[in-house]
Computed example of a mutant assay.
Amino acid sequence: MAPTATTTLAHARYSSPVGLVDLVGGLAGLRRCGWSLDVPGTSDELDETMAEALAQVVAYFAGELRTFDLVLDLPPMEPRKRAVLDAMATIEYGEVITYAELGRRSGTGLPPRAIGSLMGGNPVPIVIPCHRVVAADGLGGFSGGERGHELATKRWLLEHEGALPPSLF
């Protein structure tokens, strides 16, 4: 069966200050966002939904956008993971909270390590801002960014938002 307008996924790539950011989605919304994603079978012809997603990501990196307003087409997920992603989506630009605080906000009662594990499966980092969640004693982890540069990417995103002072080195 040939793909239809409702099933065809489009792919956009943006060369950001922290590497190549890929966006995947279609008319139903943004499905994935990440660094150097493997996206076989997608089109490079963007529909209006994906053109808007790309425009908002570009504006975010240019410092012109603080809050994303995009339709998301997230996959089905376990209720606790959905609760964590929903709570993460409410973290404001420039705000930083701990994994423990995210556990409280999500209502899941999960310990920080479990929260971090669920966050690692965030299909749309940056848009659902997992970089704004840190450990009680430091940056914590980050699964976004170019391979080998994950924590540097998290630090850059937090500096970009004014949540961390710029690194001297």
Rank of each mutant, 00 (worst) to 15 (best):
M1T: 11
M1D: 12
A2F: 13
P3A: 10
T4K: 08
T7H: 08
L9I: 01
L9C: 04
A10V: 08
H11N: 11
Y14G: 04
Y14P: 13
Y14L: 11
S15G: 11
S15Q: 13
V18E: 10
G19N: 01
V21Q: 05
D22V: 02
G26D: 07
L27W: 04
L27N: 09
L27G: 11
A28I: 09
L30W: 05
C33R: 00
C33H: 00
G34C: 05
W35Q: 02
L37K: 00
L37P: 00
P40A: 06
P40G: 05
S43V: 01
S43C: 06
E45W: 12
L46A: 05
L46C: 07
L46E: 06
D47V: 13
E48S: 15
A53Q: 04
L54A: 08
V58R: 08
Y60W: 10
Y60K: 09
Y60H: 13
Y60I: 01
A62D: 15
L65M: 07
R66L: 02
F68H: 13
D69M: 07
L70W: 05
D73T: 08
L74F: 03
P76N: 09
M77H: 01
P79W: 13
P79E: 11
R80P: 09
R80T: 14
V84D: 05
D86T: 07
E92K: 07
Y93P: 13
Y93R: 06
G94Q: 02
V96L: 14
V96F: 02
T98Q: 12
T98V: 12
T98G: 09
G103Y: 03
G103N: 05
S106L: 02
G107Y: 13
G107F: 15
G107V: 12
G107T: 06
T108G: 07
G109L: 03
A114G: 09
I115G: 08
P123M: 07
P125A: 03
I126R: 00
V127L: 06
V127R: 00
I128M: 10
H131E: 10
R132S: 03
V133W: 11
V134C: 14
V134T: 14
A135K: 15
A135W: 15
A136M: 08
G138Q: 11
G138C: 12
G138V: 02
L139H: 10
G140Q: 10
G141H: 04
F142I: 02
F142S: 09
R147N: 11
G148K: 11
H149I: 03
A152V: 06
R155W: 11
H160T: 08
A163F: 08
A163S: 13
P165A: 12
L168N: 13
